[in-house]
Design a protein around this nucleic acid. Sequence first.
DNA 1: GCCTAATTACACAGATCGGTGTAATCAAGG
DNA 2: CCTTGATTACACCGATCTGTGTAATTAGGC
Lengths: 213, 213
Amino acid sequence: MTLRPEKQSMKERILETADRLFYLRGIRAVGVDTIAAEVGISKRTLYNHFPSKDELIAAYLQGRFNKAPPSDKPPIEQILGTFDRLERGFASKGFRGCPFVNAVAELGSEDKSVKKIAIAFKESRRIWFRDLLLKLDVPDPEGLATQLTLLVDGSIAQDLVRDDPSMARAAKEAARVLLGNAGVGIVGRDGGNTAGAAKKRSSSRRTRRPPDV
Amino acid sequence: MTLRPEKQSMKERILETADRLFYLRGIRAVGVDTIAAEVGISKRTLYNHFPSKDELIAAYLQGRFNKAPPSDKPPIEQILGTFDRLERGFASKGFRGCPFVNAVAELGSEDKSVKKIAIAFKESRRIWFRDLLLKLDVPDPEGLATQLTLLVDGSIAQDLVRDDPSMARAAKEAARVLLGNAGVGIVGRDGGNTAGAAKKRSSSRRTRRPPDV
DNA sequence: GCCTAATTACACAGATCGGTGTAATCAAGG
DNA sequence: CCTTGATTACACCGATCTGTGTAATTAGGC
């Protein structure tokens, strides 16, 4: 009966489907019945693994907490590479903004646990930037790290409404300026200039998975 | 019976209440019954003024389209002043992020009209920045305007999840660097340095109206 | 074969959703 | 006074929501 390996546990299957639907259509817009039907299980089974939708939501956001893969590349490349990965994410078909920001926007200040997870995620990214900046001996790693997160979240929000992956490139150029201002030497500018980046209203949206946010 | 002037029309009263509830609690989270009850009218009256909730949502977002007051102050002050107003907005009690981003995040790609309004708003702000930058004769007003909008939206998203109005200051400092890099002379840095701005995890939230986004 | 645990189908509860139909009431202006 | 239009109360629709109760069915390990 098991046509394919099916190494996933039931809980994983539920969580995977919930992740996809919550992220793509919105948390409030997706009911537990829809999730159960999509997984191909009964609603009862779903509730056997997650006591409530709220817990499923929390698990969904926890699962979005990325596994930032450690890299041995130079810090400056890692920092700027963030925006390249961001641009690929924007261009992927299923991109729908930052799941944490979206969740907070949807569920408001009612759900405290959701906000806590969102805060933790945002802070983790800021710390990731900061630790890289520490290696670069910039004057103010804390403040610069915060500014870089602003560019990240700003480009995400802009792409969410505009569907314009070039926002990531604009953010990258701004990041380069901020880094340069902090005394970090400019590293290989890629291809074209960034002028009029907002003009190339790309209508691409290829078929890739949303890598990370 | 009219204790106070009551110069508002019925439609305005409905829209005002809808705006407050939609923005504060989320669009999907607020039903038409709730809005009617809050206004103190019957649901029938509400539907006499707005044929559907979707139209009410559209009117809500249209109403958020700000009236950018023309100013005769120097462009550079207007640009940087944006972040000051942003910080005041963040510190106000009812601030809950960008209504347009929130709406797109909530309603997803289903509602086309909502997305159109959101795009128009974001673009209008970019144009506002660009026109000011044109007066400053910067090399790339289009690209720089885009970058400034990234800082604006980034700080809004960050404040939404962190409740930290200092994000606006961090954005302002970054904007100053970007402007300086474009050849615009530094204008009066205010008070303290921007270092560790992310540290002053303000728990303020005063009682003010959300001015604009 | 048997025990245990998971999963199933399915009905149902209680609430809320957007939206409508209807008839009574109210207010204002001619 | 009378007419007209707005507003009211209120019942109701069908759909959907989260969550539960229950009894039958399945599958695997001993």
